[in-house]
Write a protein that binds this DNA or RNA. Structure first.
Lengths: 213, 213
DNA sequence: TAGATTGTTAATCGATTAACAATC
DNA sequence: TAGATTGTTAATCGATTAACAATC
């Protein structure tokens, strides 16, 4: 199925959005769609969509369009959503809790094995089938269960050291909510840094721009 | 101070990161930095940094570099971080609470006026100086206090209708955590959509890629 | 002055869009 | 077959990088 070797980050970042919209069409019972229609839905050009899909081989059929089912399965395969990767979460504050309770790791390719915290009040508790363990057991647990990724929802000050140690213990990806800029790409470990701050500042800029018009 | 009219989104999205790093240098008492040094810190090219800064006029001095103080103030001005914009937050679940308790709106250009929810258990409570009001008072409050932006931490199903109504009532920007894709740019209202899902899927893809090597 | 480093123009690179032949 | 729509190549556009004169 995979065709091109080096798919650009620009393309990759559009894939989840395609998948989201196509899944919802699938759920509605739709079976086919043209690049033109999809482009309208997403505010992109049909050309771009065809280029993007063709990075991964032919999903479409000339004169007909794309099979939504095929496309969804293709995207699931490309993104690796059905490979049952595993995750642990570190830091059960409000944000950690929000993710555990409200976020579906399952539908994004991961099983959340358990969470870790240092606060006696939350250790031992469980929510949504996820147990909170003592952070002192973290590395032993990682050694034994080899989770693919770690979700960091700890205070930003401890993030760099924690990240480094997790990678030493074999973690292969980080989803970083700490606000700290983590870069371990040189170690071959992808990191997605979620920067609420950056995001809000960008909004702030845009709001100011509308003001000046 | 502002020079170019149309600064590209690519540039804008780098500004918060510059600001973050420069602020921390400022806090450490550093006074000057060259584009080369900053580029090393951030993993960018010196050329790009000079191009970016020059979108907004000359912050630097030939043969010397950039004054960190000047640069920070310049970025604060460009991003509009010191204009005391106002915000309301709607949906005091775990995520809403996480933002209220742990996120510094102040240092990102906004004052969080208050929050809204429909749950009797949280209405009337306060945290971090932010009171939770009954969502039935929302539009009256917005009419009266004219917050610049609204933070949406409600279930995704109610997001589109809520967004539309908020805009009708004069809200000028949305920070959207609902997972729903909101696009009100045609109404001149900027939206920052935070898609946890997209982010995690992108990570999933990258982790898979490392696997295949 | 000599060395350093910016501001800015030109060159390169990559991503998006347009066009159209292939084909269902 | 005729109409539609893909897959793919070529053209355009925009963003990044390189180069270097200006100047502190």
């Amino acid at each position: 199925m995979e065709k091109k070797q080096n798919v650009s980050r620009a393309v990759i970042q559009r894939l989840p959005r395609y998948y989201r919209h196509l899944s919802s069409l699938r759920a509605k019972g739709e079976t086919r769609i043209s690049s033109r229609k999809l482009a309208e839905m997403l505010g992109l050009t049909a050309s771009q969509i065809r280029q993007d899909f063709n990075c991964f081989g032919g999903f479409g059929q000339q004169g007909y369009g794309y099979s939504i089912e095929k496309l969804c399965e293709g995207l699931e395969d490309i993104l690796g959503l059905k490979r049952a990767h595993t995750a642990v979460l570190i830091g059960v504050g409000n944000l950690g809790r929000a993710l555990i309770k409200n976020f579906s790791f399952e539908s994004n390719g991961f099983k959340l094995l358990c969470a870790f915290d240092s606060d006696r009040m939350v250790i031992g508790s469980g929510m949504n089938g996820v147990t909170v363990r003592d952070v002192s057991e973290l590395y032993a647990y990682v050694d034994q269960h080899k989770p693919d990724i770690a979700v960091l929802t700890v205070p930003h000050a401890i993030a760099p050291a924690l990240a480094r140690k997790l990678v030493e213990h074999g973690v292969r990806g980080l989803w970083n909510f700490t606000g700290e800029d983590l870069h371990l790409e040189n170690l071959g470990v992808p990191v997605e840094n979620v920067h609420f701050s950056d995001n809000l500042m960008t909004l702030c800029y845009q709001v100011n721009q509308t003001e000046e018009k």
